[in-house]
């Protein structure tokens, strides 16, 4: 099976600043993939590379086996919803649908018309006068009615109020349920992704900190608490991602191939939030080592 998005040693430089460097990742087809990372991690750059708006300074990006944006076929296979859902302010909703029909060979006009009717959008209303939530819904409609194999959504809900955010994600889940499409959804908020994604990629400073199926990530990570211990002294097959220590006690988030049966530890489950944040901190700071005890007296 070909990966939906594949990046090999990709770097993108703007002037002297590298927005993305040495990025190697493979996003599997057929999943709903969350691309999460702090602001400035290179999420937008990566998505723009994948959709062909940018070309890499070094390395290679392949999307569904094609070079991104290379010809109408490759373009038709990828739907893109850019950050802040751009739309032509002076064109009406109807004219946007018209544009979609004119510019996309696989355009599903019936679906788009249905969608817009369900959303209660007026076809004659100019896009410039739509609310943020309505514009996001319009942009999503345009991207989906194109009938792409891969749908890339760049921070689609970042600028939406909680209600619009909920409605947008609701729409997205309907699409996931009814259509055979790989979706990549970027966000700096894990909560947005948790409800819809079954695969997670954590991007920090342009590098992949962790990637995997959400259920597997949750199953293979544990929070353990016990008497103070150095994280490097864990048995093989267990890696501390994050460790914090108080006087007599250590708490660690560990990745473990099998279950942790050491009675020394109290094992508790982790949330996706815990895992992602641990990896973000890990990528930024490394593991917090147990400080050596100061024996001054």
């Amino acid at each position: 099976m070909t990966a939906a998005v594949e990046a090999i040693g990709v770097g993108k430089r703007y002037g002297r600043r590298w927005a993305l460097s040495d990025c190697t990742l493979s996003l599997p087809a057929g999943r709903v993939i969350g691309l999460v990372g702090p602001n400035g991690a290179g999420k937008t750059t990566l998505l723009h590379l994948a959709v062909g708006l940018l070309s890499p300074t070094v390395g290679e990006v392949r999307v569904l086996g094609h070079r991104p944006g290379d010809g109408p076929e490759a373009l038709a296979a990828v739907g893109f919803l850019a950050q802040d859902s751009p739309a032509y302010a002076r064109l009406t909703v109807g004219q946007h649908l018209q544009m979609g029909e004119w510019l996309n060979p696989r355009w599903d006009g019936d679906w788009a018309a249905d969608r817009v009717r369900q959303l209660g959008l007026d076809l004659r209303q100019r896009a410039g006068t739509l609310s943020g939530g309505q514009r996001a819904q319009l942009a999503l409609t345009l991207a989906v009615a194109k009938r792409p194999e891969l749908l890339l959504l760049d921070e689609p809900v970042a600028s939406l109020d909680p209600l619009a955010r909920r409605e947008f994600l609701q729409t997205l889940m309907e699409i996931v349920a009814t259509q055979d499409v790989t979706i990549v959804l970027s966000s700096h908020l894990i909560a947005d992704l948790e409800r819809v994604c079954d695969y997670m990629v954590v991007l920090v400073s342009g590098r992949v900190a962790v990637a995997g199926v959400v259920d597997e990530l949750l199953a293979s990570h544990h929070r353990i608490t016990g008497a103070r211990r150095d994280p490097t002294s864990l048995p093989s097959g267990q890696v501390a991602i994050e460790a914090s220590h108080v006087e007599r006690q250590s708490t660690m988030l560990v990745r473990s191939d099998g279950p942790i049966i050491d009675p020394h530890w109290v094992v508790s489950a982790v949330t996706l939030d815990d895992v992602v944040l641990a990896y973000m901190r890990h990528a930024r700071d490394g593991v917090a080592e147990a400080p050596t005890l100061a024996v001054a007296q």
Binding site: H48, V51, G52, L53, G69, G71, P72, L75, A76, V78, G79, F80, A82, D84, P86, A87, Y88, A89, M99, G100, L103, N104, P105, R106, A139, L142, K146
Partner: peptide, 15 residues
């Protein structure tokens, strides 16, 4: 300026 290039150039028409 308005960001619509991200809409225009990701339809199925090459840039």
């Amino acid at each position: 300026e308005t960001g619509t290039y991200r809409l225009a150039w990701t339809q199925s028409v090459s840039r």
